[in-house]
């Protein structure tokens, strides 16, 4: 019973972490996303924008 509880907790925690982590990572590495690390070709005057909302 006790060992089963540990396994259940591990499965639930692992499941939550896995689901959240995988979906978050998919979003992060999605090539269509305007990611912060993406390099941008400089082509126009909008290069001097501090940020966008």
């Amino acid at each position: 019973m006790a060992k089963l509880a540990t396994i259940v907790v591990a499965l639930v925690a692992g499941g939550v972490l896995g689901a959240v982590g995988i979906i978050a990572m998919m979003g992060a590495v999605n090539p269509s996303a305007d990611h912060v690390a993406q390099t941008t070709e400089i082509v126009d005057a909008s290069t001097s924008v501090y940020g966008t909302r």
């Binding site: 006790a2 060992k3 907790v9 591990a10 639930v12 925690a13 939550v16 978050a24 590495v29």
Partner: peptide
């Protein structure tokens, strides 16, 4: 207390890793 010590430890490990899973990038 209800089950055994490893169950509690497992939850703490999950809680410690949750911020990382939420923000892997």
């Amino acid at each position: 207390r209800r089950f055994e010590a490893p169950a509690g430890r497992m939850l703490l490990i999950g809680a410690a890793l949750l911020p990382v899973a939420l923000l892997p990038d």
